[in-house]
């Protein structure tokens, strides 16, 4: 507990120093506020326009969470199929790698074109961003089960469902979490990217990406800064939530999760 407090304290100190450096640079080099506003101005505008900022953040959160959850569900299903049949795996696995290497940004405009701007298209983009690492990691987990354990289950006449439920799935849980941890950050990036492309044609209140475009057009640099920082905080929160769930589920038995808890 004391260790964790120290960690939080450390992070807070680093943050304070960064803000201080930011403030000093703006002062010393006399950077005009429409290029880099001083920290106080950003804080003030964040407070003043908080309802608007919060609403944008909520929309982006909804899209990112939706995309992440969908990618977990679909990703695990695909991984189950891959683990089931070496033939299917060999044939289609290269394409999931392609999913990671293709400049995924390029797909975003296509999707907006196909299904129109809005919550569902942006969620879909976040989903596609997340999918590859979920599939790759979960498949790895499902197929890396110790052959002796499988034989142990067979010795006791275990059904295929039992081998899946009591052996393969629990074994791949730490692998799945590696995938989710990577995807949690990517989901936010995916959602904001989607909004940037969907941006101008969106009606009324949009997510963080949309608001960034808008603030940029209006040269509201301070608000732009507030948005960027809010989006960063969102990614952070995601990541730590995932870490927390990982710890909750795995700390009893898994080495990496146990190390995080310092036990």
């Amino acid at each position: 507990m004391k260790q964790r407090l120290m960690l939080v304290l450390n992070a807070a100190i680093v943050f304070a120093v960064l803000v201080l450096v930011w403030w000093a640079i703006v002062r010393v080099f006399k950077v005009p506020p429409y290029m880099v506003p001083p920290p106080m101005q950003v804080a003030k505008i964040a407070v003043a326009r908080f309802p608007e900022l919060w609403a944008s953040l909520l929309i982006t959160t909804e899209e990112a969470v939706g995309g992440l959850f969908a990618s977990i569900v679909i990703g695990v299903l695909v991984a189950l199929i891959f683990a089931r049949s070496p033939w299917i795996r060999r044939t289609f696995f290269p394409y999931t790698i392609l999913l990671q290497t293709v400049p995924i940004m390029a797909i975003a405009p296509l999707i907006i074109m196909w299904i129109g701007p809005g919550l569902s298209s942006v969620t879909l983009i976040a989903f596609i961003f997340c999918l590859a690492s979920i599939i790759a990691n979960t498949t790895q987990g499902l197929i890396s089960v110790d052959e002796n354990l499988v034989q142990l289950f067979l010795m006791h006449n275990a059904s295929q469902a039992q081998i899946l439920g009591r052996l393969r799935l629990p074994h791949s849980l730490p692998y799945l979490f590696v995938g989710i941890r990577i995807s949690s950050g990517i989901a936010v990036i995916g959602a904001i990217t989607g909004e940037l492309f969907a941006g101008s044609s969106q009606v009324g209140q949009g997510g963080v990406g949309y608001s960034i475009l808008y603030a940029m057009a209006q040269l509201q640099t301070a608000y732009l800064f507030a948005l960027v920082m809010a989006a960063t905080a969102l990614g952070f929160t995601f990541f730590f939530l995932v870490m927390f769930f990982e710890w909750l589920l795995l700390h009893n038995w898994h080495e990496s999760a146990a190390r995080q808890s310092g036990s």
Binding site: N148, L152, M155, N157, R166, P170, H171, H254
Partner: peptide
Amino acid sequence: EVVSFVFQDATLLPW
């Protein structure tokens, strides 16, 4: 049903 196997490493389920 009447046979059990003990492997070289303990092969326990860590979870």
